[in-house]
Write a protein that binds this DNA or RNA. Structure first.
Lengths: 196, 196
DNA sequence: AGAATAATTGCGCAGTGGGCAATATTGCTC
DNA sequence: GAGCAATATTGCCCACTGCGCAATTATTCT
């Protein structure tokens, strides 16, 4: 059994992904609050009850994609060469990130993020960000000498994620006119100050 | 009728405040998710249905206080003398803010913010912050020459509110050992870099 | 194969948000 | 003051939600 992860796990993950995608599809199609959990479950081929076993609500299901992306981002930061500055590592990871976001999903992103005007979604999204901010701060902290002030990583992570958020918002509001990487760079430069 | 604001408005505001306080009281008493809207409405002397006319949910009602505080903060920033730097104005406003928060509500804050561990509350809180970030950015923008880059206020506001958030979290996690103003200053210094 | 473990499902229930229409309250004009 | 328009409150109702519980089904292990 060379499968590092059992069939059970893989199937579960596949289902989770399917539910996520069903939520996404139905949302761009009908609008977030005209989609019932039942409809999503139906589209994903599971029962309403099972939906609750995977996600606590529609919001989580819809944002699952983004959460994965940011989780990847954190992992990337953690794996950057140790000699890099923290801020440099963050920027590098971000570049990698922007590349993977850009190519396929332009209008996809458009409608998705537009649906994200919804208060309930915005809230959940920011809560995710906050949770991952901790992880990001840890990843940053693990690459500095322990003599450094312990608040530095927290501040760095927060500044960085705020930049990301602002850049995304601007990108959307400019109707995806520019390359994501360009917008992100602009914001990061503005935020950068003395972090490098 | 010298009342700049009619009796109607004032009464409405009083009710809103009453509902907010009832929510707060019941929450510290029984825990957030053991409090029903009905109980709150009851305690505030209104019907369950009327509660919905004031707030969209328990979270909003509970966070109404904080929202007011930040709204005040924004107003204060707007009213700072025009010759001040943006960042200086923010710091000054913050000092004023911290003073008003500190004196009465120490354990109050403790239990309140502790209740804010609740995911649903955290989410709504952050959404509020995001909404007010726009206003704050505007307030900042209105005090600079229009030649400046337009993203600067956005970044400033975000950095500032992130600092506030981090400081609050640290303050809580240190069990209110230090003065709020002290913690806030520490974080702001760390974030400050070149903003002044 | 058969037992152990874990996932899916149906059922039920208390709670919720909000539309709608009836009712009560407030503000304004005479 | 009285009468009227504007606005706030309430009750009723219903679709939707999250979750506990127990039965059923699928998977993994020995």
């Amino acid at each position: 059994m060379e499968s590092s992860v059992g069939l059970r796990e893989r199937k579960k993950e596949a289902t989770r992904q399917a539910v996520h995608e069903a939520t996404l599809r139905l949302t761009v199609e009908h609008g977030f609050d005209h989609v019932t959990v039942e409809a999503v479950a139906d589209a994903a081929g599971i029962s309403r009850r099972t939906f609750s076993n995977y996600f606590t609500g529609k919001e989580d299901a819809l944002l699952h994609g983004e959460e994965q992306q940011i989780r990847d981002l954190v992992r990337t930061v953690r794996d950057r060469p140790a000699e890099e500055t923290a801020w440099a590592a963050l920027r590098a990871a971000m570049t990698q990130f922007a590349e993977r976001v850009a190519p396929p999903e332009r209008e996809w992103a458009l409608r998705t993020r537009l649906a994200m005007q919804h208060p309930s979604l915005l809230a959940r999204q920011l809560a995710n960000h906050a949770a991952l901010e901790r992880d990001l701060a840890e990843a940053v902290a693990s690459r500095r000498s322990p003599s450094q002030k312990s608040v530095r990583p927290l501040v760095l992570a927060a500044a960085f994620l705020s930049s990301l958020r602002i850049a995304m918002r601007m990108w959307i509001e400019e109707d995806l006119a520019r390359e994501p990487a360009e917008v992100i760079d602009e914001i990061l430069d503005e935020m950068a100050c003395r972090f490098d």
